Simulated assay, not measured.
Amino acid sequence: MANVVIYTRKLCGFCTAAKSLLSRKAVAFREIDATFDAKLRQEMIRKSGRTTFPQIFIGGHHVGGCDELMALERAGKLDAMLNHG
């Protein structure tokens, strides 16, 4: 199983939706809550090039946010990414 990291913030519906999808798939993930930590937010921006939450990494590869994660699932590509690790 690939290593999954998700940068989140509190009260973020997109973060909740992304975590819910991963949980339904029984995927373990490391959540980095950057709500009140400017250094973690800057780390996320540096790694992803984006300022919005969530930002998701699978196997060290930046896949984007919730919309991109859901698109991978709809396209049938998410399971292969998750199992490639």
Rank of each mutant, 00 (worst) to 15 (best):
A2V: 05
N3F: 07
V4T: 03
V5T: 14
V5F: 00
V5S: 02
T8P: 05
T8L: 08
R9T: 12
R9S: 07
R9I: 14
K10L: 11
K10F: 07
C12W: 01
G13P: 10
C15N: 02
T16S: 10
A17Y: 07
A18D: 05
A18I: 12
A18C: 09
K19P: 03
S20E: 12
L21F: 13
L21Y: 12
L22M: 13
S23E: 12
S23R: 13
S23I: 05
R24D: 15
K25H: 04
A26L: 13
A28M: 08
A28T: 11
F29M: 06
F29K: 03
D33A: 05
D33L: 05
D33S: 06
A34T: 01
A34F: 01
A34W: 00
T35D: 12
F36Q: 11
F36H: 12
D37K: 03
A38V: 06
K39Q: 15
L40R: 14
R41F: 11
Q42A: 14
M44E: 06
I45R: 00
I45G: 01
K47V: 01
S48M: 06
S48F: 06
G49R: 09
G49C: 11
G49P: 07
G49L: 10
T51K: 09
T51G: 03
T52H: 10
T52D: 09
T52G: 07
P54F: 04
P54C: 08
Q55M: 08
I56K: 00
F57K: 02
I58S: 02
I58L: 00
G59A: 07
G59C: 07
G60Q: 08
H61C: 10
H61I: 14
G64H: 07
G64V: 10
G65V: 04
G65H: 02
C66G: 01
C66E: 04
D67G: 08
E68T: 03
A71Y: 08
A71D: 13
L72T: 05
L72D: 02
E73G: 03
E73C: 04
A75S: 14
A75K: 15
L78F: 05
A80K: 12
L82V: 06
L82P: 04
L82W: 06
H84S: 15
H84Y: 13
H84I: 01
H84M: 14
G85L: 14
G85Y: 12
G85H: 13
G85S: 06
